[in-house]
């Protein structure tokens, strides 16, 4: 008997968000490679290898990773527990009782703000028991945080 997937996908805008992230990284790498070859530091086959690597980052980062990640990253909050799924090569399912949740944080990077997305991080008393939901739209993130905060306020035993 296996576990089913968590009920919710993250926001569909997350795909564009992740693609933009890798796009920005690719552009920076491209600029570095161009600068390197114009100054004369990158010559011969190294030059082509560098541009090939940049192209690979752009194609995989913009074309493959966001779609794959969107299919894999799922989450669910029930009345008793939180359940997340992450990772594509190494898949990781995590379940934590709401009573053991210690803090709930939201985080918005500059690119995430552009797409009105948030990352919700749920921490437990264990340094290795953190759960992250990346790419939630802002309204959902606020709702989740509110729900979790309300649920954790009533629970007393954090098992430290």
């Amino acid at each position: 008997m296996e576990l089913r997937d968590p009920a919710n996908l993250v926001s569909s805008r997350a795909r564009t968000y992740w693609a933009t992230q890798y796009g920005v990284l690719g552009v920076i790498l491209l600029a570095a490679a161009t600068a390197g070859s114009s100054v004369g530091r990158l010559t011969g086959e190294w030059r082509w290898l560098a541009f090939l690597a940049v192209a690979l980052v752009l194609v995989v980062g913009v074309g493959v990773i966001p779609i794959w990640r969107y299919r894999v990253h799922r989450w669910e909050v029930t009345s008793t527990a939180i359940y997340t799924k992450r990772g594509w090569i190494v898949q990781e399912l995590r379940i934590a009782p709401l009573s053991r949740v210690q803090t709930v944080d939201t985080e918005r990077g500059p690119i995430a703000q552009l797409f009105k997305l948030s990352t919700v991080t749920v921490t437990t008393a264990s340094a290795k028991g953190e759960m992250k939901i990346e790419g939630l739209d802002r309204e959902t993130a606020d709702r989740v945080v509110q729900e979790l905060t309300a649920a954790t306020a009533t629970g007393a035993d954090d098992a430290t």
Partner: peptide, 16 residues
């Protein structure tokens, strides 16, 4: 077991 604050199931490509 009472001390557990979360449980995880982790599987790499080769493990799967």
């Amino acid at each position: 077991r009472d001390g557990a604050v979360a449980v995880g199931i982790r599987a790499s490509f080769f493990q799967r």
